[in-house]
Nucleic acid binder design. Structure first.
Length: 491
RNA sequence: CGGGGUGUAGCGCAGCCCGGUUAGCGCAUCUGGUUUGGGACCAGAGGGUCGCAGGUUCGAAUCCUGCCACCCCGACCA
């Protein structure tokens, strides 16, 4: 476990300040658990957005935007949905302020009370289905495959930087279909997109599976999730895709005429992935020197650091650096050339390691003389000297290699921390002493899951899609089970 | 919301228990100089209503009360 993740040491503080700062507003501010994402942290989010958005488009989706305010009445249309979200909603009750009559400050104008309170969206199913109702009459209007990039607010009892903030950024897909089969396919398709993104871009191995009834999204018939293991042995739900059946269509009375002229309710899915992914990157890949970003998501993939004593030296180095930058940029690689003279090279090395830049090139007078460049990789911290004219080829290959290596490291970690367990004592022992994923039999009842949770704090993260049929006995009750579920303590 | 902790310069902290000069230290910033192949050095300078509001006192960063925010542990959740 990287000390970097747990200690509020100097590194941690510096990292924390580079990526994010906590909301620090005026006195009496009640903006609890919100974050100000600084440019470097936001750049990582933009990379995530950009790559995911391409994948959504490639699977036929389009972007749209819906209001942040949801009338209270919308919210209560779907019984389980209200139940799930009611406890964590921010509510707007007034629309105007006025000067306090005693002349001190400003107060809410009681005359400006809203007839119906507005909920700041914790998720947008209701307001979107209220629109879909007007958009859908016939099977010819289907499917609707819409994604929205937005912020949402959930008034959590306890917040945690990146992993559970009161306000967070995310994307939420909301699709409408003519048949059950098509909606189920969509649900499956999107969990696959998420898994593909996690593994190929985030370098984060994930386990795809079904959520148990207890862990299902409020209002869904079925929830699929990708679950990742963090370096501290805790699980992180990294993305979810929900099969909503006809629940929201019924709640908002969205019917369509099918090919045979019969009226039916529309089938729905929704799926989302949030700024929590930045947290996942940090928790999964960091080491004692700071972040380790997978090249495919690093805002800066290559940094070039000149080592110089005077302007003439810098000019020569800049020539070489300029050529390298042009070549790399032409290959679609993002390069930063850092010529600041207020920090020493050593300081810059450490700084870019903290920021997780995958590849560092250093060029000094010695290199100019020998026609070489020093190349260092962030994941292994290895350095070597290579001929200047081979840099582009070398870097291109190295970026691929680093991406692969970060993934296999995480995969090996997960392998070493995933346990097949058949005895209760061992189950408890592993949770208490090392954490990790546990594959164990479960009798399939919510009651047993609840009891296990109460006794160990472990929950069923998912029932993996690829979990084979296998006769066994429930880890807790000893009742027969046909399949293993994935247990872990989680964020 | 319950238990524990914290809040002092941009960042990290000491001082508080036991009230008493002009509130300190490190990093960062600015100026000048020497430096630059793994977080440079010297000299000088700027930067604070000590989280907020009350109270006790001749005197409060320090003691008391209330509030706010943050961190850790629970319940809740992506």
């Amino acid at each position: 476990m990287a000390k970097f993740l747990t200690n509020r040491d100097e590194n941690y503080a510096q990292w924390y300040n580079d990526l994010v700062i906590k909301a620090d507003l005026a006195e009496n501010s009640a903006v609890r658990g919100c974050m100000v994402i600084k440019p470097y942290g936001y750049a990582i989010w933009e990379r995530i957005q950009s790559e995911l958005d391409k994948m959504f488009k490639a699977t036929g989706h389009v972007n749209a935007y819906f209001p942040i305010f949801i009338p209270k009445s919308f919210f209560s249309r779907e019984a389980k949905h209200v139940e799930g979200f009611a406890k964590e909603c921010a509510v707007v009750t007034h629309y105007r302020l006025k000067n306090d009559e005693s002349g001190k400050g400003i107060v809410v104008d009681p005359a400006a009370k809203l007839e119906e309170e507005l909920i700041i969206r914790p998720t947008s199913e209701t307001i979107i289905w209220n629109s879909y109702k007007n958009w859908i009459q016939s099977y010819r209007d289907l499917p609707i495959l819409i994604n929205q990039w937005a912020n949402v607010v959930r008034w959590e009892m306890r917040t945690r930087l990146f992993l559970r903030t009161s306000e967070f950024l995310w994307q939420e897909g909301h699709t409408a279909h003519a048949t059950r089969e098509e909606a189920m396919e969509e649900t499956q398709r999107m969990i696959n997109v998420y898994a593909d993104f996690a593994e190929n871009f985030m370098a984060l191995p994930v386990i795809k599976g079904y959520k148990s009834e207890n862990e299902r999204f409020a209002g869904a018939l079925d929830t699929y999730a990708i679950e990742a293991l963090m370096q501290d042995g805790k699980a992180l739900q990294a993305g979810t895709s929900h099969f909503l059946g006809q629940n929201f269509a019924k709640a908002f009375d969205v019917q369509f005429t099918d090919k045979n002229g019969k009226l039916d309710y529309v089938w729905a899915t929704s799926w989302g992935l949030s700024t929590r992914m930045i947290g996942a990157l940090i928790m999964a890949h960091s080491d004692n020197r700071g972040l380790v970003l997978p090249p495919k998501l690093a805002p800066t993939q290559v940094v070039i650091i000149p080592i110089f004593k005077n302007a003439e030296q810098l000019a020569k180095i800049s020539d070489a650096a300029g050529r390298i930058t042009d070549e790399l940029t032409a290959k679609g690689i993002s390069v930063k050339y850092d010529t600041r003279d207020n920090n020493t090279p050593g300081w810059k090395f450490a700084d870019y390691e903290l920021k997780g830049v995958p590849v560092r090139l250093a060029i000094g007078p010695r290199d100019i003389e020998n026609g070489t460049v020093e190349i260092a990789r962030r994941d292994t911290l290895e350095k070597q000297s290579i001929p200047a004219d081979k840099v582009t080829g070398h870097v291109t290959e190295l970026l691929v290699e680093i991406q692969k290596n970060i993934f296999s490291k995480a995969e090996e970690f997960r392998k070493a921390n995933t346990f097949r367990v058949d005895k209760w004592d061992e189950f408890v022992n592993i949770l208490d002493n090392q954490g990790g994923f546990i594959l164990a039999h479960w009798d399939g009842t919510p009651e047993t899951e609840e009891k296990i949770k109460n006794e160990t704090k472990a929950t069923i993260r998912c029932i993996p899609f690829d979990s084979p049929d296998e006769d066994g006995r429930c880890i807790y009750t000893g009742k027969p089970s046909k399949r293993r579920a994935l247990f872990a303590r989680s964020y």
